[in-house]
């Protein structure tokens, strides 16, 4: 599997840390690479889709790193695919056609980081309210929020 990946993506894209194989894929190749990994290499389980905001990370070259964790249920291999994105173009193709499980995971990444998944059937906020405007897991959003949590009417005993 690793050899096939090496010939496809080149040596520089592969790395390993604590026994976990990782590959960096350019955004334009993402759809075809994922298709190839699923159909030819047997990665039938999409474990997770997540994102890292490298805004305050030391020596980071890109703003966002999208992470796909794949697993092969037959051979128990795992593979981490990473895609780097920069503002303002935060769009990647959606993986919903390949793995149905990507649906909600991509919606969550959209909600928390504002990454746009092109071709997603229902790309709406999933955890935060519809009208919320910020993306809370970005590093420029404060932990305590911007006062949204205090903005409600107060009910007293006389009122209800």
């Amino acid at each position: 599997m690793l050899d096939a990946l090496k010939t496809r993506l080149g040596d520089a894209a592969l790395s390993e840390f604590r026994g976990q194989s990782r590959a960096i894929v350019p955004r334009d190749d993402l759809a075809s690479t994922m298709q190839w990994l699923k159909d030819d290499q047997g990665f039938d389980l999409l474990v997770d889709v997540t994102c890292v905001d490298y805004l305050s990370y030391r020596d980071a070259e890109h703003r966002f790193g999208l992470v796909y964790l794949l697993a092969n249920t037959a051979t128990n291999e795992r593979l981490t695919i990473r895609v780097y994105l920069d503002e303002p173009d935060l769009a990647v193709p959606s993986m919903c056609d390949l793995w149905c499980g990507a649906n909600w995971l991509e919606r969550e990444v959209f909600d928390m980081f504002g990454i746009e998944f092109r071709g997603h059937p229902n790309l709406k906020r999933i955890l935060m309210p519809e009208a919320f405007v910020a993306h809370p897991l970005r590093k420029d959003y404060p932990l305590q929020g911007r006062g949204e949590r205090h903005n409600f009417p107060v009910l007293t005993r006389e009122q209800a």
Partner: peptide, 27 residues
Amino acid sequence: LGFYVVGDGSDVAYRARCRPPSFIHFS
């Protein structure tokens, strides 16, 4: 149940992502 942890040299995780089984099952 897994965690994707990004370390940045300090003793606080730069990112602590949880892979939540309930979330995936509810979809």
